[in-house]
Amino acid sequence: MTALTPPAGARMGAVPVIVIGGFLGAGKTTFINRIINSFPTRKLSAVVNDFGAIDIDADLINLGREQVIPLRNGCICCSLQGDMLSTIRYLLDQPVRPDGIIIECSGVSQIGDVKTALLDAVFWKEAALDSVICVADGQDILEDPAYFAQSLRAEQFRDGDFIILSKMDQMSPEQRQSVRERVLAQGKRAEFVLDNTAVQQMENLLFSFSFDYAATPGRSRGLRASDAVPVQPFASLAWESDRPIAFDIFQQVIGAHAPTLLRAKGILYASHAPETPAVFQMVGNRVTVGAGHDPEAGTHRSRIVFIGYEGQIDLRTLRTDMDRCVAE
């Protein structure tokens, strides 16, 4: 087995899409630039909201102009799919297909709408929703006791798979802790501070092309990320099976291990449809399962990579539980 490290622009199933939301001034553009700089060998395209007047965000993003596409009608039309469809189709039709797409939601738009639009089955096979990231101003959270009382903010938090906290660098350790606790109280556990190390830490969580599920059956080993150095503080398990998976047990296993998992991705062959590859993707506590393309078509081999924090993820039990999903 060789690792999957396709050249930039190679056709490898669906192009992963990251959605980034957050309020105006929270630091979304900074974060997007950090992502772009972190994947120098990848062709990334960014879709930004443009309300027609001045295309500010598009100018601030460190990509060639042709790779930054303004969404003319803003996110309400994403929710109606029109703009989103045409923009993504346009990007996928370029001579060199992007390796990943970043969609920036304007500060006032609802991430949930974009997420819903991207979860259309027609989209999924070509451009699959990868992760939803909410960038939030830590200083605001610290200073505004009613921060989460605003419904739009609460919804943006709820819709984010990962939360990025910005403007934390001037805070005392106690203040940082207080902000973190407020974020945790919103039911978010995967939060990162937007500083120089944050994106490095997240590289293995962003974009499924960082994944490599080529592994020896049943043996756990460190994750190999194709673009980044591995990989503290994460631990990972590569699991595979030649026999189909009992999906109901699999769901229970994922549910039980969800608190310790940050990401998982793979190809599944379920016992109720043993001939059909299903692409499985877990980001935070959100799982997507859909018909997809198996680059090793014909092998019918289920394989999944799981990633969690070192010290939290229980690799041994996870492997045992996964083995129990294999249908007799």
Partner: peptide, 9 residues
């Protein structure tokens, strides 16, 4: 900790 499952198939 509840997992949200999206099915697209």
């Amino acid at each position: 900790n509840l997992v949200l499952w999206h099915f697209l198939d």
